[in-house]
Amino acid sequence: MEGYLGVDVGSVSTNLVIMDEKDDLLAYVYRRTMGQPIVAVQEGLKELEEKLPASVEVRGAGTTGSARYLSGVIAGADIVKNEITAHAVAASHVVPDAQTVLEIGGQDSKLIIIREGVVVDFAMNTVCAAGTGSFLDHQAARLGIPIEEFGSYALKSKSAAQIAGRCTVFAESDMIHKQQIGYRLEDIIYGLCQALVRNYLNNLAKGKEILSPVVFQGGVAANLGIRRAFGEALESEIVVPEYYHVMGAIGAALLAKEAVEGRTAPSNFKGFSAAEIKYETSSFHCKGCSNNCEIVKIEVGGRVLARWGGRCGKWEVEQVEEAVAGPI
């Protein structure tokens, strides 16, 4: 059986999927990045291999997410794509007539407008990460509620508290204040969900035409309170795909299939044994000019696989696979 690997390494989670030749999901892994993207990808590959039937042969690999270039080197990618494209491709695959994609991840949020299957507009949060997954994690921990149950509290709310969502620091002060004057926990939590949704829409959706079907994906889509708040704010049904939390990886796998189509050369994929390779990363400040760029280097057994971070082309490694040549 043929399979296509998709890897999405973000700030909070690392997701890997294998899609079969009919574009159906064969297996997936969702794990925390824990600040160690290389380990996360390698462990993820191991875990994924265990979940797969032995007959699967990986014909293509794609990576996305903020660590897409790094994971592209680790896994051996045929294509490295930004998160917007990957999420849009995945959303259109799962919900073919999707027109709007809301995606909230660990530290960023995106709004993608799709018409007739192609992206026509998008927005990413600019200078502020208020209302993303990390903040919800933090608040759940502060209130002593497991993040998995956080959203279900919000569903019990009958009258949401008004929370200032402009800035997470102020939102937290506001929540503490509301607790101290006796608001019910569920009303505070739902108030927070509403504030985050308001902030998202004010930041990203200004002037954009949001049409149904609206697909909500990314880790935060697990949160029932945020789903409810989006539904109420947009007065629309919110579609949450079954594998909402690994949509970026699904998109990367679909893009990998597209990339290797008609190609005779074998995939760049290094195989699941890439999990055993010992990668060394190091960084240094280039002293070549007064920019003092920080150059990051990835090596295996003394051989430099990739180097990036410089503003000029001086440190770029020759003869790396084209797909992982580093950011444009």
């Binding site: 930004n82 998160e83 917007i84 494209t85 192609v118 992206v119 990413m124 950011p327 444009i328």
Partner: peptide, 16 residues
């Protein structure tokens, strides 16, 4: 952030 947006923007145009 700049690179991601730029890549997404150019991809959007290419795919369209």
């Amino acid at each position: 952030g700049l690179v991601t947006r730029l890549e997404a923007f150019l991809d959007m145009i290419d795919r369209k």
